[in-house]
């Protein structure tokens, strides 16, 4: 079947088998191997991407279901030679060890913060239910997300380059987060 999918800003077409999963399309057809496959039952969340702005596990979606859709993968998150601030936060707070869950975790985390809601330690833990990590014990993942959240709460969510230009240094963000907590 023919699909037309816009991935990280580039639209491409391909003939795929009807059973092709979106994650396999991303990895095998587009060679975007930043999205990982960690299970075969949609539990682990390693394959989380954004589909039309929503976080989805790309192993639960057929490529044909994503026809005429817009997908952002971990490769599309960073740009202009800079990491996305969430990626920076994971690096700053040691939010990853082996790194296998990380791309899915970051894609989920970006939307988690963007969607608002409870950004307390408990609130983040409860909303990370769909993503498994076997290395970090989650503590530093939660810290990373809170670190990032301290940064973005201060202004309206911005998109793309504008957000990049606007983002504070991590140290400033940390101080901001600390002030908020006290």
């Amino acid at each position: 079947m023919r699909v037309t999918i816009t991935v990280n800003g580039t639209t491409s077409q391909a003939d795929v088998e009807p059973r092709t999963l979106l994650v396999d399309y991303l990895r095998d057809n587009l060679e975007l191997t930043g999205t990982n496959i960690g299970c075969d039952t949609s539990q682990c969340g390693a394959c989380t991407v954004h589909l039309d702005g929503r976080p989805v596990k790309s192993c639960t979606i057929l490529a044909v279901q994503a026809d005429d859709s817009t997908v952002t993968t971990i490769e599309g998150l960073s740009g202009n030679g800079q990491l996305h601030p969430m990626q920076e936060a994971f690096r700053e707070k040691h939010g990853l060890q082996c790194g296998f869950c990380t791309s899915g975790m970051i894609m989920a985390a970006v939307k988690l913060v963007e969607d608002g809601g409870d950004l307390s330690d408990r609130g983040i833990r409860e909303r990370l239910e769909g993503n498994l990590c076997r290395c970090t014990g989650y503590e530093n993942i939660v810290r990373s997300i809170r670190h990032y959240a301290g940064e973005v709460e201060s202004h309206a969510p911005l998109e793309g380059d504008e957000a990049m230009a606007h983002h504070r240094t991590l140290q400033e963000a940390e101080e901001l987060a600390a002030r908020r907590q006290s």
Binding site: T41, R125, E129
Partner: peptide
């Protein structure tokens, strides 16, 4: 035999250490 049946822990199973 799968992550549906084998209970590896999730983030909200724990308090901060």
């Amino acid at each position: 035999g799968s992550l549906m049946d084998y209970a590896i822990p999730k983030a909200d199973f724990f308090p901060p250490f």
